[in-house]
Each structure stands twice: as C-alpha cells, then as structure tokens.
Amino acid sequence: MSGRFSAAVDYTLALAVLLFAWWFATGPMGLPTYLLPSPLRTWNALVTIALTGELWRHLGFTLQNIVLGLILGCIAGIAIAYVMTRFPKLAVWLDGPLVILQTAPKIALAPLFIVWFGFGVLSKIVLIFSLVFFPVFVGAVAGFRALDPKMKDLSKLLGLSSIQRFRQIELPAAMPEIFVGLKIGAVQALVGAVLAEWMSGKVGLGYLMTFASATYKTPLLFAAVLLTVVLGLLLHVALTILERRLLSWKGAARG
C-alpha cells in the first residue's frame, strides 16, 4: 500500500514539473503559440471540443478500434497458437507463411489495407489486428509449448475433455507468456490506430491531429497529442490491473 502511495506521489510530482516547464517555456520564455501553445490555450481547445461533443466522437472511435483490434488479435493469436501446438503437423505448414507475415512491417502494409478494406473502420481494425496478433501469437506459442509434461499426465489421468484441459490447465499455464505478448501488442495497437487515422477517414484522434496541423490550430493539435498520451497510459494501467488479477499466483509481479 505504501509503495503504491509513494508511486502516486512520484507521478504527481513528475507531472507537476513537466507542467511547470511547459508553462515556463510559453510564459516567461515567450515561445510563440504556433510552436508551443500555453497550457491554458491547450486546455481551452480541449474544453471547446469537449463541449461540442466532437472530442468524444474522436476519442470513442479510436478507443473502439483499439479495443476491437486487441480483442480480435488476442483471440486469433491464442487460437492459432493453440492449434499449432496441438497439431504439430499443421505447424510445419503454417510456420513459413507466418514467419514471412510476421517479419513484414505491418505499418508499410497499411496503405494496402486501405486499398483492400476501404477508408472506413474496417481497414483500421485490420491494421491494429495485424499489429496485435503477432506478439500475442508468439507469446502464446511459447506458453503452450512450455507446458509441464506432468500437467499433461494430470489431465490424461483425470480424463479431461479438450475444453476442460484448455480452460483449466493449458490457458492459465500459458497466461504469463501471453501477457508478455499482449503488452507489446497494446502499445502497437495505439500506434496503429493513430497511424491509420492519419491516412484516411474523418474521425479519430489521428484525424484530429492531421486536421489541426493542416489548419494551423496548434493548441488543438497539442490537445489531440496529449489525449493520445493519456489513452496510452490508461491502456497500460488497464493491462496492469488485469495482469495483477490474472497472474497474482505468480507472486511479486511488480510492473
């Protein structure tokens, strides 16, 4: 408890220092607004779009894409990893194509996704999905392969059904490795979401950035950037909480 409290103090202090430096640069140092808007102007820009409701539309869109991409990427990553470890013959066939796809830079494929899946929400979710899938998949394969053979003995002895074995033994045993992949995937998902919105469409935090910079609304641009940072932090916090709950049995999971 005291550890958590002192961490909160640390974060607050760091934030205060940053805010002060920001204010100092724009106030006493007198940097022009088109380079660095003051905290107050940024805040005003934020409040304005919050009041018109635009903020929630953009934030909601980005968040929705990230969450959908994360969920779909996780399910597919875990499912395919599981099938591959259960049926090693299949792994021989799938390994090659998967390695090629994995090494291909997904960001570079983004324009192709737009060509294939359009300017709408679909191409964005596909990009996020492709960014989340691989780290989760790699983690899950490692997790499933590392299963203690004695656990297999136990499930065989108890005559567990495939579903019971997966739900009760294999998935929880692989969870630590899956989480390693998921945490990497979550960072990538945010990058992918913003990037996809830069390239096409008329909604999302990424779009808000391109719009603001094209129209020289630097305070709005700053507000959008800050929102993205906050979104990344929230994502990190949510995953950490989830990890604490799911992996508390590992003990001493500090993060």
Partner: peptide, 18 residues
C-alpha cells in the same frame, strides 16, 4: 469407472494458480 485410479506422483503436480 471413468477414473479407476488415483495417482500421487513423485512430485506434487499442483496447479500453481489454484
């Protein structure tokens, strides 16, 4: 019987998350 034998292995083999 579906499970005729109980087996106490040389190691405990408990599920660490339970």
């Amino acid at each position: 019987r579906k499970r005729p034998v109980g087996f106490v292995f040389q190691e405990p083999v408990l599920l660490p998350w339970k």
